[in-house]
Simulated scan of single mutants.
Amino acid sequence: MEDYSEYIPDNEKGIQPLQGIYFNNPSNIAKELYYYPMWGAEYQVTYPYVVDRQYMNAFILFWVEEGELSFTFNDRQDFVAKKDSLIILDCKKKKSLLHQLLK
């Protein structure tokens, strides 16, 4: 199984794990042919939740069930995801992504 620890922040303030983390171990052929989940989890976050992802060789998916989550790329706020939003982001650009819970 691959080690994804470099992509998972050590200390995320305002995060409460609800379920997970579940790791995936796809076959070599699946890795060559498909996009696949590396891991998954369900979290509840509270203010002030902020994560500064410097780089992750993957896409990340967010489902905002309640509240609002702000996303910033290259030091500018790009959008706010509201309740029932599904967001898929490409995190392969270095120093590009900041997301935070809004009050």
Rank of each mutant, 00 (worst) to 15 (best):
E6R: 15
E6P: 01
E6T: 14
E6D: 10
Y7P: 02
Y7M: 14
I8H: 02
P9V: 05
P9I: 07
D10L: 15
D10V: 12
D10H: 03
N11E: 08
N11W: 02
E12Q: 10
K13G: 10
K13I: 14
I15E: 01
Q16S: 09
Q16N: 09
L18R: 14
L18N: 05
L18P: 06
L18C: 02
Q19Y: 14
G20I: 00
Y22L: 02
Y22A: 09
F23W: 00
N25M: 06
N25W: 08
P26D: 11
S27T: 13
S27V: 06
S27R: 02
N28K: 15
I29Y: 00
K31R: 09
E32N: 14
E32A: 15
L33A: 10
L33P: 01
L33M: 10
L33I: 14
L33E: 12
Y34R: 13
Y35M: 09
P37L: 07
P37G: 07
M38F: 03
M38G: 13
W39M: 06
G40F: 08
G40R: 06
G40I: 01
G40L: 05
G40Q: 01
G40P: 00
A41Y: 13
A41D: 08
A41M: 09
E42L: 12
Y43T: 04
Y43L: 08
Q44I: 15
Q44R: 15
V45T: 06
V45S: 03
T46N: 05
Y47L: 10
P48I: 07
Y49H: 05
Y49A: 00
Y49M: 04
Y49S: 00
V50A: 07
V50Y: 05
V50C: 06
V51S: 06
V51Q: 09
V51F: 02
D52K: 15
D52V: 15
Y55L: 10
N57E: 12
N57T: 11
N57H: 13
A58E: 12
A58P: 07
A58T: 13
A58Q: 11
A58M: 13
F59H: 07
F59P: 02
F59T: 14
I60G: 02
L61C: 03
L61N: 07
F62T: 05
F62I: 11
F62A: 03
V64N: 01
V64M: 04
V64K: 02
E65Y: 04
E65Q: 12
E66P: 01
G67E: 11
G67V: 11
E68Y: 07
E68A: 13
E68G: 03
E68T: 11
E68H: 12
S70Y: 06
S70H: 03
F71L: 09
T72M: 09
F73I: 04
N74P: 00
D75R: 04
D75Y: 08
R76T: 15
Q77G: 06
Q77P: 06
D78Q: 12
F79P: 00
F79V: 03
V80E: 04
A81I: 07
K82A: 13
K82M: 10
K83L: 06
K83E: 13
D84G: 02
D84R: 11
D84F: 03
S85G: 08
S85V: 07
L86V: 12
L86R: 01
L86I: 12
